[in-house]
């Protein structure tokens, strides 16, 4: 779904995010709950995973300055989870896509 919000990347701007829900369209940030880094996959058989990998899964995150794939939930809208690709330096949202779809 092609929905690019007009979020200004100008330094000093104080707008909240305008988030493109793939189901409902552009909506203000206060309708959403943040869900953290996307594509952090829980092991299918956790008992077979060693402590290092399990700790990585639970606690360690990319935390990049730049492009970041993250989950949002349209908590005060359709209620559904989806993914957003956002630049964490400019806060510009580049794309949104449904759960199960790959990062554009």
């Amino acid at each position: 779904m092609k929905l690019l919000p007009p979020r200004s990347p100008i330094k000093g701007s104080q707008e909240m995010l305008l988030i493109p829900c793939p189901y409902c369209g552009n909506r203000p940030e206060i309708e959403f709950a943040y869900g953290g880094e996307a594509h952090v996959v829980r092991a299918a058989a956790p008992r077979t995973v060693d402590d290092t990998a399990w700790t990585e899964f639970l606690y360690f995150r990319k935390n990049p300055r730049g492009d970041h794939a993250e989950r949002w939930r349209h908590a005060y809208g359709c209620g559904r989870f989806f993914n957003v690709k956002r630049n964490t330096y400019t806060d510009q949202i580049e794309a949104s896509y449904r759960i199960g779809e790959t990062l554009p």
Partner: peptide
């Protein structure tokens, strides 16, 4: 609410 390095935030 979200990860950011922008050194600003939203007004709300």
């Amino acid at each position: 609410a979200y990860v950011s390095y922008s050194q600003r935030g939203a007004l709300h």
